[in-house]
Simulated scan of single mutants.
Amino acid sequence: MGRDKATVAIDDPAGPSGQTTLLERVVSIVSRRCSPVFVIAAPGQALPAVDATVLRDEARGVGPLLATGHGLRAAADAGIEHAFVCAVDMPELTTEIIDTLAGPAQRLGVDVVLPWDGRDHYLAGIYRTGLHGVVDRLIDSGQRSMRALVDSVDTQRIVMAEQAALTNVNTEADLSALIPPKFSQRIQ
């Protein structure tokens, strides 16, 4: 998108002044089902105030695996066994996705539960918080991909229809196509 996705502002009648950022939107959705909520930010990244604990990555440009490990460690330290891990660029995420994945995560005793709609959605899954040690070992061995994590542990995939709730936005066109007409982006 050419800018920090977390701070991309979109029109949202429920948001303050009719606006919200992608970060505020996703935190508001996730916090309906998850507590505590942790946001992993890059060093020095400016973020709007959100009802979540903001943690800082130690390094920029390492990818989501390092951030996931950081969040899983924080959740484990808070006494949480499973955590929903998602990207900030999923404006149509729903609590139903979280609920659909949480049941199998608790029943099956697996390390990861991911939605699958023809592809894995690594950043919209339930992860056992104890995996932070596995993440550390993968990072130490030079791995950076979420695929490396889910391929090295017991992962269950839940087949779902392709849906807007699992769509992440990578370009301004993606955002414009995804957000209903009552919403519009405002790139500052």
Rank of each mutant, 00 (worst) to 15 (best):
V135I: 05
S176D: 11
D117I: 07
S176K: 09
L138I: 15
W116R: 01
D117S: 15
R144E: 13
L131M: 11
R119Y: 02
V134E: 04
Q156V: 13
L149M: 05
H121Y: 05
T155W: 01
A148D: 08
H121E: 14
V135E: 02
V135F: 09
L138F: 13
I158N: 12
T167K: 13
T171A: 00
E162V: 13
D151Y: 05
A173W: 03
V159I: 06
E172F: 14
G125F: 12
D151K: 06
I139Q: 07
V135Y: 08
S141K: 03
R128V: 05
A173R: 12
I158K: 01
V134R: 02
V135A: 07
V150M: 06
A124K: 02
A124Q: 10
D174C: 06
R119L: 02
W116D: 09
T167I: 11
A148C: 08
L166F: 00
L131G: 08
D120Y: 05
D151N: 13
S145E: 08
R119S: 12
T171D: 07
E162Q: 10
L166N: 06
G118A: 04
A177Y: 01
D151E: 09
L123F: 06
Q163S: 14
V153Q: 09
T155H: 03
V153P: 03
D140L: 15
R128S: 05
R157K: 04
